[in-house]
Amino acid sequence: MSFINYSSREISCKIVYYGPGLCGKTTNLQHIYKKISPDSKGKMISLATETERTLFFDFLPLALGSVKGFKVRFHLYTVPGQIFYDASRKLILRGVDGVIFVADSQVERMEANLESVDNLVKNLKEHDFNLEDLPYVIQYNKRDLGNVVPLKEMEEALNPRKVPYFEAVAPKGEGVFETLKDVAKMVIMELKKKS
């Protein structure tokens, strides 16, 4: 949920990266953390298991600059992708302003992608959110691998609403900022519409 503070002249928004286990949500954040200048970012917090799987969430605060005299902050969160961490995923969606769904393009992960989208819809409903009303973009990640599902098929399966989508190779940074920028714009425009 956005926070506008007239005293400190700041606008803060929450963006959540959602998707199945090992689809590259944390890798997206790691790339952003690596590339953003130190003045524009806070510490990246990863609550992970010993095997570096996300246990609760990753958190990266960005303060990219000011617009109309207000500092704009984006708080980026990832959810744990593994099925049995559903309770944690639900909690992280609280107060979300925008969602990036990171899909794993590999053929064998299509089922997991579909399950994760269903899970996203269900968990948003528990917070009285509808995915249709929320700024939402899809990132088709791992496009550099050999066994990927054709883009058209992924679109048909995962994007009935025809929201903006981006092809990505997160470890190389391809598509990472494009995805974030697009959802950031949608979030701010949505806030503008409501104001």
């Binding site: 506008i4 990219l64 704009v72 900022f177 920028k181 503008k192």
Partner: peptide
Amino acid sequence: DGDSPLTEITEDDIENLF
């Protein structure tokens, strides 16, 4: 009320942040 800092923000402003 239209008294929000967001009313004048454009997509280009957000683009420029990045």
